[in-house]
Every structure is written in C-alpha cells, then in structure tokens.
Design a binder for these strands. Structure first.
Lengths: 243, 243
DNA sequence: CGTTCTCTTGAATCCATTCAATACGAGTGG
DNA sequence: CCACTCGTATTGAATGGATTCAAGAGAACG
C-alpha cells in the first residue's frame, strides 16, 4: 500500500513536509487493516489498549458515559483521522469509541509509533501537531457547549464538519453526506434529541440548511457562518509550517 | 538551575522515566525566566507566537471570547503546567492566556523543543503524553458542561483542581488556596456568576465545601466525590509507562 | 407485516439566566 | 478620616431556553 496517498499522510503533511524516507517510516507504522461493524464499540472505557487506529473509511464517535445513563460525544472521526491515541498513551482508555457506520481502519501499535519517533523527530512533531489540532477541535466544541445557544451550536457543528470533510474531499460548499442521526447529534451538542429536531426545522424553514436522509444541504452558507460566528482558524490548515 | 526538581520535570517523569541526559536536554529547553502581572494577557488570540511557557509560580487561564462579549475559560494552569503549546505548533494562537495572579514562567522556544525531540524520542513521547493529558482534562470539562448540572459541574471542578494541586504539593484532602473569583469560576463552568454563587451557598449549607476568601475548605470529600461522580482515572498518574 | 429506529410535534415543567438591588472590603484621593 | 470608587459577593423575582413527557407518523429491516 502506498501510504503517501492516504488521508493520514496528507493530514500530517499539512504541518510537516514529509520526505519519502519519512513516508516509508509512516508506512511501516501502519499495521493490518481491520473492519468494524457499526454500533459495537471498538474501544471501551477502562480497557487496556495497546493499539490506535487510522481511519480509512467510515465514521466513528468518541464518547464518555455518565452514571445517569446519558452520554457526551466528544468528537466524530472521519476518514484520515487518527483515533485512540490517548487510549494508547494512557494505560487504559479514558473514553469509548463507537463506529457510526461500518469502518475500515489500520492498526497502529504503540511500539511502532515510538520507533517511528526515534527515526524521525519531524514525524514526532507532526503527530504532536495532529494531537494538538484534535485538542483545538475539542476546545472549540467546549466553547460552543459552554457559551453558544442551541442554534449557534448546531450551525457551528455543521460548518466544522463541512470544513473537515472538505479537507479529505468528502464535501463541497453545497453540502455533504452525513450518516449521523439526530440522537447522535444531540449527544454531541449537549442537547436533547427533541430540541435538535426543532433547531433543524428552524434552519430548514429559514432556508439555511436541510439535514435529511443522510445529507446536509447548505442553502445559505454566508447566513450559517454569520449565525455560528464560524472561523476556520482553529483548524489550522494553511500548509506546512516545518519545511 | 536544576531542572530535575521542577514541577515540569516531575510531571513528564510521571509518564516517561527520564535519564540524567534527558533531564539535561530538558534543562537546555528552558529559556529565560519571565514574570507577568495579573490580568494582562500573556498570549492573545490571533497573535503570531513562537514561544511556549512552563509555569513556575502563579495561576493562569486559557480562554476564548465570543462576539457577544462572553467568554469561555477552557482550563486553568497551575505551577508545573505547560502552556501555549498549541499557539506554538500552530502559526497563530487560537486562544488567549491570561494570568489570574502574578506569574513566573520559563520560556520555551519551538526550535529548542524540536531539537530536544531530535536528541531524545523519549522526550518527544513524554511531551506528547503531556499534551494528551491536557486534552483529557479538556474532554472531561466538555463532558461536564455538556451533561452535568450546575452542582455536579462545580463539585467536579473543585475536585479536579484539588487533585491537580495535590500532585504539585499545593493541596491536601482538607483543602487548598484558590485565587479564583466567582466570575472566573462562572466563565469556566459555563454558568452565570450569580448561579455559581447560589451553588456555592448550597454547598456551604450542605456542609460539603466552603469556598471563601481565596480558600477551598473541603468538609465532606466523600460527599463531594459522590455528587460529582468524580474519578481521577483521566488524570492518569500511576507512574512511568515507558521505563 | 410487525418490530424497531428515527423523525416529528405539542404541552408542561424546570433549571439557569437576566434584571435588580444590597452589602462588603480594598484602595485612592481630598 | 471620610467620601467615593471599583471589584466581588449575595439574594430575590421574573423570564426564558431547553428538557421531559407523551404521542404519532415514516422508513427500514428481518
């Protein structure tokens, strides 16, 4: 398999320009390809876990559960995303990972990752950057839940997803395919499913976006951006910083 | 200065057992010591920034602002914490950093950090771990704001702070000094200052904790832990994983 | 062809906010 | 030494955004 063409290599390359030698190291890190059915957890909280994954196809969500049965989805991962890094660096996983759709992913062993770092500090820096970018998204998510109302939050979420999918060629400014149910959306946005439904209806009636039948159709991008106060700066993808 | 004894070295050492040679590299990373007065931002959103800091003394907060004037505090940093890593890896800072008290911090240049990685992949791994631990805290914060009510959230926050301060010797199970105003607390918890005040009064009346005059006095630790459903697992400090 | 998700809408409820007013201590300057 | 400010803490009352409860409709699936 040519790693150079994978979404993962493209993503790391966005921060650190990777040489052929480094791409080979990256290639060596990729273990066997695995597939996971939708709905059954790939990683479970508290589980001792020695491997992370790079998503090749499908969507997953990372979430935490609460004693009252509720859950909070921290983030969704789309093709090209690294997942489970924290559950590898920590002794045990501190969150759950559930495939939203059927998923294909390459396994990455901690030992291989660490050896890759030894061979190339630039690679280590790139992975650190990727982790920081993930953190930036979680931070933005936190800000949204803490200080934005339901409409702003939902609009922001749909725009962020669009921006991320665009990076891997899975969205256009017009819209994108989105396999998320309103329940999943609610668990991510810190709202009730009922309220998510209302917000989506309001968006539809206002001619901003329609989210139906697994597709997000953006009818008024400018309007949405204004409503959500969306700024892609935190996604930081302006080309390699480390040449 | 002997870096071995700093809170930062102690923290990294919690994940990767660092050799003397690695401690020397770490030492070389520390640039000049700087002090910052309370209240004036050390790092401002959008600012191009080439250095991070390791907090030696004092408290700072990282926050983002919203167009309506509100703000969300993402995290507080206490002595020993790394801060501004993201604003260094990204071209520009994606958040603000404001000293809550007068602060002393050592500057860390990106170039020095990167060179340290080249000399020791174990160090790179340790920094990646530290970043992941920060992310884990943000994630827990996200879960709290998304799915916990005001009481649970506040209790959880006070306990997390206690656990973190204990690690650097600044707290006991009985309580700790805390320079945060109710306004800062509100901005961190995604609540209004008025409501934070009410929650704190309820805690006082219930004999759980008192937070007055810059001190948090914990009267019923078990009760607080139960209320907040607090579990330190996500702080992951069970000794070095990489020997 | 019934079961199970998912989506949808209305009505009642409630937690937290906003508005408003008071109190208190630390500074500051007349 | 007192008046005045300013930041912080405190409490009551009214408001409101989102939740919960409830019920029905559609689509998907074995």
């Amino acid at each position: 398999m040519q790693v150079k063409d994978t979404a993962f290599a493209r993503k790391l390359g966005a921060f650190v320009a990777l040489s052929d030698a480094e791409l080979d190291i990256l290639s060596a890190m990729h273990g066997r390809r695995r597939t996971f059915p939708a709905g059954r957890d790939m990683v479970h909280e508290g589980q001792v876990n020695r491997s992370a994954y790079v998503l090749a196809a499908g969507w997953v969500c990372s979430y935490k559960t609460l004693p009252d049965g509720g859950r909070q989805i921290v983030d969704f991962q789309i093709p090209g995303d690294f997942l489970g890094l924290r559950s590898v660096l920590f002794r045990t996983a501190d969150h759950n990972i559930e495939p939203v759709t059927r998923v294909e992913a390459s396994e990455v062993q901690f030992s291989d990752l660490f050896e890759g770092f030894a061979q190339s500090p630039r690679l280590a820096t790139a992975v650190l950057w990727a982790a920081s970018r993930d953190e930036a998204m979680v931070v933005e998510h936190l800000v949204g839940i803490g200080r934005r109302n339901a409409q702003e939050r939902t609009a922001h979420f749909l725009l962020e997803l669009g921006a991320r999918l665009t990076l891997v060629g899975l969205a256009t400014p017009r819209g994108y395919a989105c396999p998320l149910s309103q329940y999943l959306l609610a668990d991510a946005l810190g709202l009730s499913a009922v309220h998510v439904n209302r917000v989506l209806r309001e968006f539809r009636e206002a001619g901003l976006v329609t989210f139906q039948k697994g597709r997000v159709e953006i009818h008024d991008l400018a309007g949405l951006v204004a409503l959500a106060d969306f700024d892609v700066a935190y996604l930081d993808h302006d080309g390699p910083l480390l040449k």
